[in-house]
């Protein structure tokens, strides 16, 4: 705008012609310091990691690594532990994502109204976000502790929640919902505040009740944000490690061994780097597949 407006036409074209390569050069000078470390330590390892999935790499320093093709994947398909870990991982991520979303939507709707105590509730809603995952895990261990925990003494039960075959998974799911609610609530609340007020006024004029307004105005308006945050939550939940590692280490008997815990054990307890990498690749394939179907359906419904 400035160049063409202040200078006569031919020199301007000349100047712009010279400026483009200079801009590109400047960009490279600026990008390189950031690109080199990103490529070296982020893109590179990832590609290397994917490559490892097709080798028999092991932790031992003297181990000769060789290319084995799809052998790791064939082994995974025949590994009962892999299937049970994937099953638990899917139950965990789908349940936590869905319940987290429903709970957060309810909370966001409440926080969006003029209620007494709203300020305090807003602070409380963000606190889990501010806590280190390790502390969250340790805190819930105290909550679930069979003798010194509050759950047993409140419910009058005598259950060792985290060591019980049928209760361990539900117990960590409750913690998962608790720890992930802040992000989801904050994002949904921001979305709610951006819904144009006129829509509700128009709805009220047409005689729409609270439910009708929610279904016909709030939900459709929030849709892009809901799709984004549930997809992100799902990915984060599939990749969850620290919380569950601290709480149960995958026990009892593998009942809470999420795919990431399985991969960690294979890689850093038993030293099967290639096998763990293949596991990582399989998880990416499953996640991208599920997300693809989800996003595709959402897009189709939206149009």
């Amino acid at each position: 705008m400035t160049a063409t407006a202040t200078k006569p036409a031919p020199p301007a074209r000349h100047a712009r012609g010279r400026q483009r390569p200079r801009q590109t050069r400047e960009m490279w000078v600026l990008m390189l310091p950031a690109l080199v470390p990103v490529v070296l330590f982020s893109v590179g390892p990832l590609l290397y990691g994917i490559g490892l999935a097709f080798t028999d790499a092991e932790a031992g320093r003297n181990h000769e690594t060789s290319f084995v093709g799809l052998e790791n994947f064939a082994d995974l398909l025949g590994d009962g532990d892999f299937w049970s870990s994937m099953r638990i991982g899917l139950i965990w991520s789908v349940t936590v994502t869905v319940l987290q979303f429903l709970a957060s939507l309810g909370l966001a709707l409440l926080l969006n109204q003029k209620l007494f105590l709203r300020g305090l509730a807003r602070v409380l809603a963000v606190v889990p976000w501010a806590m280190p995952p390790v502390v969250i895990g340790l805190m819930w261990r105290l909550v679930y502790h069979p003798d010194a925990g509050i759950v047993n003494s409140t419910l009058g039960t005598d259950i060792n929640w985290l060591a019980d075959f049928s209760w361990a998974l539900p117990a960590i799911i409750v913690m998962g919902i608790w720890s992930g609610m802040p992000q989801t609530t904050v994002v949904l609340l921001a979305g709610l505040q951006n819904v144009p007020r006129e829509l509700y006024e128009a709805g009220a004029m047409d005689g729409a009740g609270t439910w009708r307004k929610f279904w016909s105005i709030t939900l459709p308006q929030l849709r892009p944000i809901i799709v984004t945050i549930t997809s992100l939550d799902f990915v984060w939940n599939v990749n969850q490690f620290s919380l569950v590692y601290v709480l149960t280490q995958g026990g009892p008997g593998g009942q809470t061994r999420l795919p990431m815990l399985f991969a960690y054990e294979e890689a850093f307890r038993y030293g099967f780097f290639g096998y763990a990498a293949a596991l990582g690749v399989s998880i990416v394939i499953v996640v991208l597949g599920l997300l693809g179907v989800y996003l595709w359906r959402q897009l189709r419904e939206a149009s």
């Binding site: 994917i50 990498a277 690749v281 990416v284």
Partner: peptide, 9 residues
Amino acid sequence: FPFILIIIP
């Protein structure tokens, strides 16, 4: 991408 694909390499 899961951490495992980055942390091993």
